[in-house]
Design a protein around this nucleic acid. Structure first.
Length: 132
DNA sequence: GAAATGACGTAAG
DNA sequence: ACTTACGCCATTT
């Protein structure tokens, strides 16, 4: 088994701050999954944006870590729509094939050149604004 | 417990 | 605009 996914760390305490509902079930990973799942087709977002939306702006790296912990089974999260602030497909290596991520983005009408999203500013989707 | 690693971000050159 | 350096936070060794 492998597994893991037990984020019972200080990060969880921070999450409480952003979870006035008292949802202790909502872990950092789960929150990230929720946001990622809401990314519209043909749009992309950044780790920092997600982290900021969750309130843990400084934990942009943890967002990426959460992506690595994304369950492969359903529901499939559009992790390919999450890139870094530079618009670079930094997570392509986490896919079955490095080309899978770019191919998927291109299928969404998103132009990708040199592992970088073109018109990134235009396709950028801000969870803090669009998602509320 | 300390050091190294990592789907990041910002600052400085 | 591109490259290098440093900081952040959790996981792993």
């Amino acid at each position: 088994m492998t597994k893991t996914l037990k984020p019972r760390t200080s990060a969880r305490e921070k999450l409480r701050s952003v979870n006035p509902s008292g949802n202790k079930d909502s872990n950092f990973f789960d929150l990230v999954f929720q946001v990622v799942a809401q990314i519209p087709k043909g749009r992309v977002t950044t780790y920092g944006a997600i982290a900021a939306c969750l309130g843990t702006k400084s934990s942009a790296r943890m967002v990426g870590w959460a992506m690595n912990a994304v369950p492969k089974g359903p529901p499939r999260l559009p992790a390919h729509r999450v890139v870094n602030r530079n618009g670079m497909l930094s997570g392509k290596h986490a896919f079955p094939t490095p080309d899978a991520m770019q191919k998927r983005l291109e299928r969404e009408k998103i132009k990708v050149v040199d592992d970088k999203v073109q018109d990134f500013k235009r396709v950028f989707w801000n969870p803090s604004e669009e998602l509320n």
